[in-house]
C-alpha cells in the first residue's frame, strides 16, 4: 500500500470537483490498494453524500442511490417483491460482512478477480497497458469465454450487475460537465486493445444512482449462480432471467450471464430465439445455445460454456414454473 491523501466530500458537486478516487464501502478499492494494484494519490470518501436511498421512480420503477448498501438493497421490500432476481443476485455475492459494506455504485465498478491482475509481479494489460497477459497461457479456469480479446480475458465479477443487466438498468452519472445517463449494457466496455478502460466513466465522474424500469404485471425473475462451493465464491457461471409468459408462450424475456464474460453478459441473441416461443425446456436450451454461440474456450475454462448453458436453462425453468 502506498501513502495517499484522504478527504471527505459532503455534496455530489463537491465530490466531483475533487480529483481523486472515490471510496464508498472500500471492499474493492482498499483491497486492491493493499496489493498495490490500485495506487491512488488522493482518495475521496463519498459516504456522506445523500445517495443512500431507494425510492419509487415516476414510471413505477425504482431509483437506487449509489451508496445503498448491498445488504439493504437485497432486503428492500420492493426489491424482494418485484425485482427478485436482484435480491437473489446480491445475496449470492460475497459474504454478509462484505455486503454490509459494499455499495450499489461500487459493486458496478468491481474489478476482476483475475489472479494475475491482482499480483503486481505479473504483467497485466489491464493494470499496465501493453505489458502482456499471463492468463491467456496461464491458469485460466475462472476466466471469460465471452468478450475476451488477445489482450485480456478477465471476467467481471459482479452478481448484482448481471441481474441489473437483465432488468435493463440505467446508470446515472455526474461529472464536472454535468449529469448523464446510459444503459448498463453500454456502460461497460469490451476489453479489446484497451482492457484498462472498463467502462465509460470519465475521470472524476461519479455514479449517483441507477434506475430499474417498471416490470409488466406477471413478470417473473430468477438468479442462479453455479460455483464450486455453496457460498463466498465468484460465479463460474450464473444466469439472471426476467421473463413474462402469456398463455404458455414467452412474451418477453431478458437473459444475462455472469462468470463467463468480460462484462456482465446480456444475450439479446438468446432473448430473440426465445421470444414468442413456447416456454419449455427445449426452447430454453435453444436460447442457451444461442447465448454461448460465440464462446471461445481457453485451456482450463471450456466447461464454463456448457455450465452457463445449463444455468440459463435451469433459471428459465425455475422462473417460468409458476408463470
Amino acid at each position: 500500500m502506498q501513502p495517499f491523501g484522504f478527504t471527505q466530500a459532503k455534496t455530489v458537486d463537491g465530490a466531483v470537483a475533487q480529483s481523486g478516487r472515490f471510496v464508498a464501502g472500500g471492499t474493492t478499492l482498499i483491497d486492491l490498494m493493499k496489493l498495490d494494484v490500485e495506487t491512488p494519490r488522493q482518495v475521496v470518501d463519498i459516504n456522506l453524500l445523500p445517495l443512500d436511498r431507494v425510492e419509487a421512480a415516476p414510471d413505477g420503477g425504482l431509483k437506487i442511490g449509489a451508496l445503498v448498501r448491498n445488504s439493504d438493497l437485497a432486503n428492500h421490500p420492493d426489491v424482494k417483491a418485484r425485482y427478485t432476481v436482484l435480491s437473489e443476485a446480491l445475496l449470492s455475492g460475497a459474504s454478509p460482512q462484505l455486503r454490509n459494506m459494499a455499495t450499489t455504485g461500487g459493486n458496478l465498478l468491481q474489478r476482476t478477480r483475475c489472479y494475475y491482475f491482482r499480483d503486481t509481479n505479473y504483467a497485466c494489460n489491464k493494470r499496465q497497458p501493453g505489458s502482456g497477459c499471463p492468463a491467456i497461457d496461464g491458469f485460466n479456469r475462472v476466466h471469460a469465454v465471452l468478450g475476451g480479446s488477445e489482450n485480456c480475458v478477465a471476467t467481471h465479477p459482479s452478481d448484482m450487475a448481471v441481474a441489473m443487466m437483465a432488468l435493463e438498468t440505467l446508470v446515472h452519472m455526474q461529472g464536472t460537465k454535468g449529469e448523464r445517463q446510459i444503459a448498463l449494457d453500454d456502460f461497460y466496455l469490451a476489453p479489446g486493445s484497451t482492457p484498462d478502460k472498463e467502462n465509460v466513466l470519465e475521470p472524476g465522474e461519479l455514479i449517483t444512482y441507477v434506475t430499474l424500469p417498471a416490470l409488466a404485471a406477471g413478470t417473473k425473475s430468477y438468479y442462479l449462480k453455479l460455483r464450486d462451493r455453496a457460498q463466498y465464491e465468484f460465479a463460474l457461471a450464473s444466469a439472471a432471467v426476467v421473463v413474462q409468459v402469456d398463455g404458455g408462450r414467452v412474451k418477453r424475456v431478458r437473459i444475462a450471464m455472469g462468470g463467463v464474460g468480460t462484462k456482465p453478459w446480456r444475450s439479446k441473441e438468446a432473448e430473440a430465439v426465445l421470444e414468442g416461443k413456447a416456454a419449455n425446456e427445449q426452447n430454453f436450451r435453444a436460447a442457451a445455445e444461442a447465448a454461448l454461440r460465440d464462446a471461445k474456450p481457453l485451456r482450463y475454462n471450456g466447461f464454463k460454456i456448457e455450465l452457463a448453458k445449463r444455468a440459463v436453462v435451469r433459471a428459465l425453468m425455475v422462473a417460468t414454473q409458476n408463470a
Binding site: R113, Y115, G138, F139, D228, R229, A230, Q231, Y232, E233
Partner: peptide
C-alpha cells in the same frame, strides 16, 4: 501459489 488468499483458496463454508 496463484490462489494465495482466503477468497480463492476454497475451504468449506458453513453453507457447505
Amino acid at each position: 501459489p496463484l490462489n494465495n488468499n482466503y477468497a480463492d483458496y476454497l475451504v468449506a463454508t458453513n453453507a457447505d
